[in-house]
Design a protein around this nucleic acid. Structure first.
Lengths: 394, 394
DNA sequence: TTGAAAGCGATACCAG
DNA sequence: CTGGTATCGCTTTCAA
């Protein structure tokens, strides 16, 4: 092949492959700061870390000089010398479906993949919604962990605890649900608007030109995410499929009996019901109700998430599609966000909105094989053994 | 709140937060190996790195002992002392759509996010399909980069070059298309089966009960990925929507005129055509052809990927849905794969299959806002300035 | 072919 | 309050 360098190819410089070769001066070190200030490394270090025993005057000078020189700590050196591990508390739910297991798996994978192997994950898992969540947060704070990943099932209740953590300089990242105005560092969740909108769009298309009403279940309209999802579903339906009537949301509060009862009632009353969008995890009771009310085969049903009990419904086509909220990816991103913050590597976007995945009969197996890849290690363990898991960002 | 530790919460030990606190002995070091062998650190190092000047006998003993002690290099120490940068060549296409720009953006983001800031990315971009790709690979090998990310547009042609790279101990990761039996380290791509299957499933649902034929365009059936995608589309259609007849694939070879001509012909001949699945980037010519043949509004069209010219078609509903191949995520994963290998951090799955995203009218804006987030820095640059970009894994 | 030793940049401790 | 220094584990160079 022609050896001439094609002109459209980036010319590659042959300078020695050292960092400084980029022509930018080598990054400033503590020593540099100390030298140019005529002080010692120890002092500079203390100043930069707000450690006691530095006069305000010198501290200020150090800070200024650090800024001038564009000082950025060398993480390799830091880790090598200190060997502190970052302890991260993961406060989540046991859960009724595999959702939270997957989130935890994602967190473990990501933690295992960190090069500096300096992350230790502690799981504090609540047995059910609202049971011991505050205590768990309190315990994490008391244990002086370096960071917290949590699912604020009831944002208002947990908010004061998150505030408390922040005040103790413990960054908190929320997963799946946000806790607004809590001072949390970041939030990782599925984009609610994208979810609601795609569900509506699919619903409309699946129903073809048929008219009728469409039902929707949510956890609680008081939670921002759920209200937003409903809103997106509603507005999309309205603008593209105005012939479909959206009914008032059914709130199930993650209580199976409540979901069943309310939906059963709906199914029996609204004979014009054509479709149903279940935004919560509690899709099985809804499906049961539809079955018992003998409307299951008449309805176009779109659910949320993916777990074993749902599989037969999808496979048989009785659930037309499910909006998969990618728990694994949520866990991974949450840990990444937190770790990057802790490692001082840089703060990126603190609000990560993931696009949901669409699962239907056709691609169901793809997602199932993905879930089963996480063969090893269940939750609750200290995650040390979860060294090398098969990994991807689904 | 109750201070008692709820029994279901993981008990947290209060041992000093040092690594060794896990009760597992501290990881073995070079010194440990040297000591237990009665030799020196230098020798151990040379043995482990295949450096010249070690007798085969001692090398063997060192290797064995390293294995026994479960030695794993401390990356922080390694990086701190050597300061070599990993140079990675990214050989991709200029491209007609924004696809490759996004891939490169993803690679840059990921490179910028690496804590040990030890990655340098060089872009070698070919102006068009097949133009200078071999030369670019040759150049990368000649430049002795540490790793290569490439798009093997014509796998057979590039295979020998990939082999050559591998023989020179330069790992190669393929993006978007695989180069089988080339010795490449890994492959990152959208799952073809998931793509084809979901497209078929949607096509069937969108068409409701209507009968008719469905067309499909591919790049070239000779490329594994395209054949697989076709296969998945075909089998899904056949098993769930047997009343739809799938036509023979139209190969466009990424030539716009070819796509237009062949499709125009199809549109005029097959008056029973109900749907069209465009698996290639060249959807615009197909849409033009449909428009000119006056069948655009009659067809249910599913395309691939997302770029500006396609937007109006989606917004107006003339393209029912598009299968988004997440170029950004592909780039990110490719770099991650390669870096983890190079950093000796561990080898995970070398075959990453991403799930495609579904874009429709409803969630279109979500994806558009995502793309525009990558405001800064275009391709072709040396990527040094792309320090902190907004980041997520879409 | 091998051993010894000087860094890399930050942390943490001990002396002034 | 501040300066000095041993240390982390590895790479690399210089002697032997």
């Amino acid at each position: 092949m022609a050896n001439r360098l094609l002109k459209f190819l980036l010319a590659v410089d042959g300078r020695p492959r050292r960092k400084a070769s980029k022509m930018g001066k080598p990054p400033a070190t503590l020593g540099d700061i100390a030298k140019s200030l005529g002080t010692s490394i120890g002092t500079v270090h203390r100043a930069l870390h707000d450690h006691p025993g530095v006069s305000p005057a010198t501290r200020a000078r150090v800070l200024q000089m650090a800024r001038n020189l564009g000082y950025r700590p060398n993480l390799a050196a830091r880790y090598l010398s200190s060997k502190k591990t970052l302890r991260i508390s993961v406060n989540t739910l046991q859960g009724t479906t595999s959702f939270w297991d997957e989130v935890r798996a994602g967190i473990r994978e990501e933690a295992a993949g960190i090069l500096l192997e300096n992350v230790e994950v502690e799981f504090r898992t609540s047995p059910s919604l609202g049971e011991g969540e505050e205590e768990a947060l309190e315990a994490a704070i008391a244990a002086k962990v370096d960071g917290i990943i949590t699912f604020p099932s009831r944002p208002e209740t947990l908010r004061p605890w998150i505030r408390r953590a922040s005040r103790s300089h413990i960054p908190v990242v929320c997963v799946a649900t946000d806790a607004p105005n809590s001072g949390r560092l970041g939030i990782v969740a599925i984009d609610t608007l994208a979810s609601g909108a795609i569900a509506a769009d699919l619903m409309g298309k699946f129903l073809g030109g048929r008219t009728g009403s469409v039902g929707i279940t949510v956890f609680d309209m008081g939670i921002t995410e759920h209200a937003e999802k409903y809103g997106a579903f509603e507005s999309t339906l309205k603008s593209f499929y105005p012939h479909l009537e959206l009914l008032k949301p059914i709130e199930d509060h993650d209580v199976e009996r409540e979901a069943y009862r309310k939906c059963r009632k709906l199914f029996e009353e609204r004979t014009d019901l054509a479709g149903m969008y279940v935004t919560t995890e509690a899709s099985i009771p809804v499906l049961k109700a539809a079955c018992d009310a003998k409307v299951l085969d008449r309805l176009t049903i779109i659910t949320t998430d993916l777990f074993p009990d749902l599989v037969p419904y999808i496979r048989s086509g009785r659930v037309a599609a499910t909006i998969y909220q990618r728990p694994r990816a949520q866990g991974q991103m949450a840990l990444r966000l937190l770790h990057e913050f802790l490692a001082e590597g840089g703060r990126r976007s603190n609000q990560v909105s993931l696009a949901p995945h669409l699962v239907m009969r056709g691609n169901l197996d793809f997602f199932l094989s993905r879930q089963s890849q996480e063969s090893a290690s269940k939750n609750g363990q200290n995650g040390q053994e979860a060294r090398r898991l098969v990994h991807d960002l689904a």
